[in-house]
Computed example of a mutant assay.
Amino acid sequence: MMNTFKKYTIAIFATVALLFTACEDADDGGNIIPGVNSILNQTENNADLSMLNAALIRTGLNTTFNSSVTYTLFAPNNNAFTNYLTANGIASIDDIPVADLRDILQYHTLTTEVTTDVMTTDYIKTLGKDDEIEFLDLFIETGTSILLNGNVTIIDADNDADNGVVHIVDTVIELPTVFSLIAANPEFSELTAALQTNGLQTDLSNTDGTLMDPYTIVAPNDAAFQALVDLNTTDEFDSIADITGQTDIDEDLLYHVVGNDRLRSGDLSTGLRVNTLRPSTSFTVDISAGTVITDGTMNTANVTTTDITAINGVVHIIDLFIRSN
């Protein structure tokens, strides 16, 4: 009898231990049973996320955020949605076309768990996609506060979920254009100002194909402007202001833009001649050792970052302001 009791007791404790271990393993050591605290549950249980919850249900993404797949969700609160609806003349969430609403929500989503302690200032791919089914980029700027695309602030960070993390934001993140992804990055302050001064931000924000979009932009950052100044101490450029103050700076800016095409890194080849929006001009590409552009003055620029994707084109970062002549 005693041996039977001991065997029964041992079996009970073994079963309990196995179940306890299984629960720990299922949520990566968080001791939370999956399904109790999913990303969807957080939108259900937080009254300030009720409009987001309604949007998830309307688009069918409620199932996505209640699954075991890991995500990061930048979650607009009710005030963010209210401001978005007002700014766009929309009466309610139900008046946004489902496909458009889904596109917006997917752009608020990362396909891995990214907490604020590992965020860096950089572009990152989202679940949102362009017309060619390439993942859209989001620009994260870290600091005292964390900004998304230059104007969206994380106001309640690192809300842990069984299947990822939720960061509550104060603004609905608009789908990005090539201009907005440039303007969001402080390292493009000179290029942004030059584009705005010459009225080119309107064209580069266009998304309906009527103004030569989609675009490919080889975008010089602030260091690239300075690199042109430093390249030749005997030329006319003694400061960045000398570059941006040229009477034909708009033509130089157009030399950095390709119209009616998304040229991704995979489309480039050695010897490729690329026609630009500056009339009758082109630059050539060499990919034999990295990606290098040779401009009309025979100066070379290295492409340091490729395939930053917007809904109306792609951006590649270069380390020298290039010129056609």
Rank of each mutant, 00 (worst) to 15 (best):
G128M: 06
G128T: 04
K129M: 12
K129A: 09
K129G: 06
D130T: 07
D130W: 06
D130L: 10
D131L: 08
D131G: 14
E132A: 08
E132K: 10
E132G: 15
I133T: 14
I133P: 12
I133C: 15
F135V: 11
F135R: 13
F135T: 06
L136H: 06
D137Q: 15
L138P: 08
L138G: 14
F139P: 08
F139N: 06
I140A: 00
I140V: 14
E141V: 08
G143E: 11
G143D: 05
T144E: 15
T144R: 14
T144P: 12
I146F: 06
L147A: 03
L148V: 04
G150D: 00
G150L: 02
V152Y: 00
V152G: 00
V152D: 00
T153V: 08
T153H: 03
I154T: 06
I154W: 13
I154P: 09
I155G: 09
D156E: 15
D156C: 10
A157V: 09
N159W: 05
N159S: 11
A161M: 15
A161N: 04
D162M: 07
D162A: 11
N163G: 14
N163P: 15
N163T: 02
V165Y: 13
V165C: 15
V165T: 05
V165L: 09
V166P: 14
H167P: 11
H167D: 10
H167Q: 14
V169F: 02
D170W: 01
D170R: 01
T171V: 12
V172H: 00
V172I: 09
E174A: 13
E174P: 02
E174C: 03
E174W: 09
L175V: 01
L175G: 08
P176A: 05
V178N: 05
V178F: 04
V178C: 03
F179K: 03
F179Q: 00
F179R: 04
S180E: 07
L181G: 01
L181Y: 07
L181T: 02
L181F: 08
I182K: 01
A183P: 02
A183R: 07
A183I: 06
A183T: 10
A184Y: 05
A184S: 12
A184K: 08
A184P: 05
P186D: 00
E187L: 11
E187C: 09
E187D: 11
F188C: 05
F188D: 01
F188H: 06
F188K: 05
F188Y: 13
